[in-house]
Each structure stands twice: as C-alpha cells, then as structure tokens.
Design a protein around this nucleic acid. Structure first.
Lengths: 232, 232
DNA sequence: CGGAGGATTGACCGGTATCAATCACCGTGG
DNA sequence: CCACGGTGATTGATACCGGTCAATCCTCCG
C-alpha cells in the first residue's frame, strides 16, 4: 500500500480541514491558550503578512474579500475545529472576521512550516487541508454560477446541515449564527432575496423558520432535489 | 531564515502551479512522453479514481463540473505549464476536457505521493500549488458573486492578459482558444451575454475584437478600472 | 462555392436588485 | 415588569439586467 492510498483514505471524507486540524491539534495546538474575539472583530485583514494559522474553538468566523466600492464576497464560514489562515502567499489573500463572540487558538506559521519541513506527513496534511478548502470553494462557485436564488439558499442550508452532522448534531435543526446580510454576501444575492427564498422554502413545506436564527429542515430530500442533488 | 520564508518567497508570486510545476518537472516529469488529446476529448471525468496528475504541454484544458440537468460550471482553464489533477480526495472532484488539440504529460499520483512522503520540500510544493489554485478560484468566486456581466468579461480578459505576461507574451494581444460557450460557463452567464459585453467593451474603446478568437486590449487601465481594480 | 458551427444582434420576458415600509426580536432603562 | 429603541428581518412595488428565443452574420473548411 502506497502512502498515496493511505493518505487519501485518511482524509478523503473530510469536508474541510478536520483531518489536518486534528493532526495539527495533536502535534502543535495542544496546550495553546485560546483568545477571545468580539463580534465583528477582525482576526486578520486581506493583505496582512501571513504570520499565524488559527483554529476555531467556539463561535463562527467568516472569510471574505472586499472590492474597492465596498461589495463583499464571503468565501466560507469557519466553525469549531476548522483551520483558517493557511495559504501559500506571503500575505493573507482574504480577511477573517468574527461573526459572533469567538475563541481562537493561534500558532505561528513559521513553526508549522518548520515542523512540516521535517515531517512529510504534516506537510502532506497541509496539502490535504487546502485541497478540501478548494473543493468546498468550487462547490460554492458552482452554486453562484449556475443556481438561481432559491437553489442557492437550499444549497446553503444543506451545507450547514452537513456541518451539523460532522459536529455530531442533528442534520435538520440548524442554528444560524450569521445574519441575512452575511448569507447574501456568501451567495451573491441580497438580504431581501435571501429572506424571500426562505419564506418560499417555508411555503413549500421544505423548512420551518422557528425564530430567524433557528431553521428546521422538514423535507431534506426535497431540499436536496431542489438544490440539484450532488449532496449524496 | 526559516523555511517558511524561503518557501513563501519562492512561490508567492506564482499565479497558478508554476512553482510546483517546475519542481515536479525537474524531479519527475522530465523525460515523460506527452500524449495527444483531440478537441472536446475528456482527460478525466468527475468521480474517476484519482490516478494521475497532468501537465499541459500545449493547448488548453478546462476544469468543470456538471449538474444533473446539464448546467456546467467551468472552474479554470489550464495552459501550457499548468498542472491539473491535484487534490486530496480519492476521486477527481471535477472533470477535465481538452479545448482544442492538447498535449499532456501524465504521472501517477502514487509516485508523486511516494516521493513527497520522503521529500518534505516536494510535499510543501504540492501544498503551495494547491494554495495558488485556491486563490485563483476565490478570485473567480468574487467575480461571479459580485460583478455584473460586463465586469466579469473584463476580469476574464485581464486574467488572460496576466497569463500571457506569465508566458512571456504581450499583455494586450489575446488569443482566445475557448468558445463563447466556454467563457459563459466560466462566468456564469450565456453566450449571448458574453458577446454583448464584448461589443460593449469594443464600443467603449477598451478592446478591439480582431477576429472573434483574437482580442486586442486597447485600454488596459480602463479595463482594470471597470473590473474593479485588484489587478495591481 | 457551399455548408456548418460559432458568433452577433434583436425582441421580449422573467428573476432579482432596489427602494421603501412594516414587522419581529432583544437588550436597555424606566 | 413593561415600555422603548435599535437592529435585523420580512414583505411589497417597481425597475432593470440578463436569460431566452429567434434571425442573421461571420469564419473556417471541405
């Protein structure tokens, strides 16, 4: 059995950075104190020198990039266990901002690379972590390029559902920590459209909006069908 | 000087896989025979077991994913020197198809991983290669999520321009190997809209469409301004 | 020269952005 | 404990960008 197969089977089912996160967690992040961030507080800005990698302990962080005129595109939300800040270039290629109150562990990138240069398994772990991010980003790209507004919202809810499953929680009871504006900036639409799509999904008896920030999925298969499958 | 800095400075300016490509090229791909692919021929399909990594010798390849109903999202075009097929999961997460006639070198992934498991520098090189892909994908995501049709086409032309520069060619004389349909599937619009935006850019004296597949950029700064900067 | 595929242009329509008003939720202070 | 205020969410009316359908044009080859 080659390392390729071993590595692949180890990480292929990780939606995001779970595999490498635990790897780094075991070898490096263990014992590191976590720091608190207030809602809306920036963890790092796009263009800052890339000094640290962070692991979310609690709360949610969004990764985004802004255009000169203020338009904002969110690339992903990071939840407990996820790593943020990995990348090849010398500066962060996107900013990171706390959604609510957040706790993060941080580790100097130089130390990560230092260890990775002596430990091929760790280096390949970094490779796999970024690969997973790339796949998730491509999925979102497919969503923005090909799906209409309702399908986008459905797809978004399904990724939240999958994250719940990964975290050992119910796939159908979603707590939404981010605002409609954040969702809009992720899906390339507006607050109003997100809201309208949610009511449409509610009217179709696919979901139930318990309290704005709490959404219950009633018909997850119907939701998957609407989003265009691909969520096996 | 830590390895982190060394590695960063070595790769940070590579828009895509140039750094790792040359690294792999030197160590592995040297001497490998290249194989020809006919226009529209598939290199690999989404879902195929991930066995090989390819380097484009000549021509252009598109990476894409299709939805059940036939909608297609192109993630990127690969040009000579670019690597395709890297990734963490056991199967290809997207398909690859030749745009015109194409020549590719291929190398078994197992061999790459085999070497990477003994050579941390190579492993970190894979990490950097994927990181660059991620950054390019995020840029496209920003384009699809936030820019209108004309801005998207402008941004697309500018990335082609940058690739030209990277290949040592003129930044303002673009040869477009892909069809309008391909461009539309990259930008999340239709053939007609792409065409209309090109004529609009022509009317604004920003470009000149020499012959459908040959476009001259007249005012590259104007084009950058229209796309919303970010192309320093 | 003629045919075929791709590109352009036009007419029309629908989905989504925009602008605006109302509503719901939650923390604060009376 | 309740009234109040502020922020975020929902809903409605309207405009417009871009998708769709259709016709014509261009370019490349046979």
């Amino acid at each position: 059995m080659t390392l390729a197969v071993a590595v692949t089977s180890q990480y292929s089912d990780e939606p995001k950075s779970g595999g490498i996160a635990s790897l780094i967690g075991r070898s490096i992040l263990a014992g590191v104190m976590s720091r608190s961030y207030a809602p809306k507080q920036d963890v790092f800005y796009e263009g800052d020198p890339r000094r640290s990698v962070y692991q979310v302990e609690s709360g949610a962080v969004c990764l985004y990039k802004c255009m000169p005129d203020g338009r904002r595109q969110i690339f992903d939300f990071a939840f407990p266990g996820d790593l943020i800040g990995l990348g090849a270039s010398a500066v962060y290629s996107c900013g990171a901002q706390a959604i609510g109150s957040v706790q993060l562990k941080s580790i100097p990138l130089s130390r990560v690379y230092d260890m990775a240069s002596k430990d091929p398994e760790l280096a390949l772990g970094l490779y796999h972590a970024i690969s997973s991010e790339l796949e998730a980003t491509r999925d979102l790209l497919l969503t923005l390029g090909q799906r209409d507004a309702t399908e986008r919202v459905a797809a978004f809810l399904l990724t939240l559902s999958q994250r719940n499953v990964r975290a050992g929680k119910s796939p159908c009871l979603l707590t939404i920590p981010m605002t409609r504006s954040d969702i809009g900036d992720l899906l390339g639409t507006t607050i109003e459209t997100v809201s309208r799509c949610l009511t449409r999904l509610r009217q179709q008896r696919l979901i139930d909006v318990i309290r704005g920030s709490i959404i219950q999925i009633i018909d997850i298969d119907g939701l998957k069908a609407l989003a265009g499958q691909m969520y096996h």
